[in-house]
Amino acid sequence: MAAPMRHASKTYLLQFAHEHIDFKLAELKAIAHLLRIPIRVDEAKYDKKNPFLVVDLPSEKDGRRIMGRSVLAKSLFELWATAGCFDDLHRELQMLPKDFVKPHLSEDLTYRIRVEAFNRSLSPAEKLERINALPEETLNFQGKVNLKSPDQSFHLLEFYEYEAQKSTKGPVALYFGRWVRFRKSDQCLP
């Protein structure tokens, strides 16, 4: 389970541009040091070819501050679940405390769910299949769908090994989270 508080920090997911891959961790550490934001990254699990990086931060505000300075980070997500297969991801989502998810799913908030894959293209039908498979008992959205400018944007992110376009293997890593911020230069992106 990713999102609930652990040691006065929350777990977030950074999505990096797939450029200058040797510098993304160094940039993150430098910005955190400059802004005096304590971060925790499990460097044993760090894969420079993976555009996604799980990081523990003190607050969403601190994550936004880092994104305001980053050149290589594209997006920041509050990480709700991560797994190596869909069944495990769904189990992780089902274990989320109701009081944690409820404020984000209320009827007065519009929402959307986006499905994105790295190193593989997904058809619209595959994306819809993944959205429909999310556990309804936990992700009981009460608000209306708004695909253009929702109050809450949830993302299912899939990371595949290279050469995955030709492979029938599943994703190496799956992430589900609530979008927090794009990098400053991309604020107008959907």
Score class of each variant (00 low, 15 high):
134 L>H: 01
38 P>R: 09
135 P>C: 01
116 E>F: 03
67 M>Q: 09
86 F>I: 12
59 S>A: 13
110 T>Q: 06
129 E>G: 04
39 I>A: 07
101 V>Y: 11
108 D>A: 14
102 K>E: 15
70 S>V: 09
59 S>H: 03
66 I>N: 01
86 F>K: 11
58 P>R: 10
119 N>T: 06
134 L>S: 05
52 F>T: 02
60 E>A: 07
47 D>W: 06
55 V>R: 03
103 P>W: 03
64 R>D: 03
34 L>Y: 02
126 E>D: 13
65 R>F: 13
121 S>K: 14
50 N>I: 01
108 D>R: 13
142 Q>P: 07
57 L>F: 06
114 R>G: 01
97 P>G: 08
112 R>N: 14
32 A>N: 03
83 A>V: 06
121 S>D: 14
92 E>D: 11
129 E>F: 13
36 R>P: 03
40 R>I: 11
87 D>A: 10
139 L>G: 06
141 F>N: 10
67 M>I: 08
45 K>C: 06
123 S>Y: 02
51 P>E: 02
106 S>C: 15
126 E>P: 07
47 D>I: 02
31 I>R: 07
85 C>V: 08
96 L>T: 12
69 R>E: 12
69 R>V: 05
117 A>Y: 00
104 H>R: 05
96 L>K: 12
51 P>S: 03
94 Q>H: 08
49 K>T: 11
135 P>D: 00
131 I>W: 05
37 I>V: 14
72 L>Y: 06
28 L>K: 04
43 E>H: 05
34 L>D: 15
66 I>A: 07
95 M>K: 14
90 H>K: 01
52 F>Y: 10
35 L>S: 03
67 M>S: 02
68 G>D: 12
93 L>D: 05
119 N>V: 10
91 R>Y: 02
89 L>Q: 05
73 A>G: 04
69 R>W: 09
45 K>S: 12
132 N>H: 15
76 L>K: 11
66 I>R: 07
129 E>C: 09
134 L>F: 04
42 D>S: 09
111 Y>K: 09
108 D>N: 15
96 L>Y: 13
76 L>V: 07
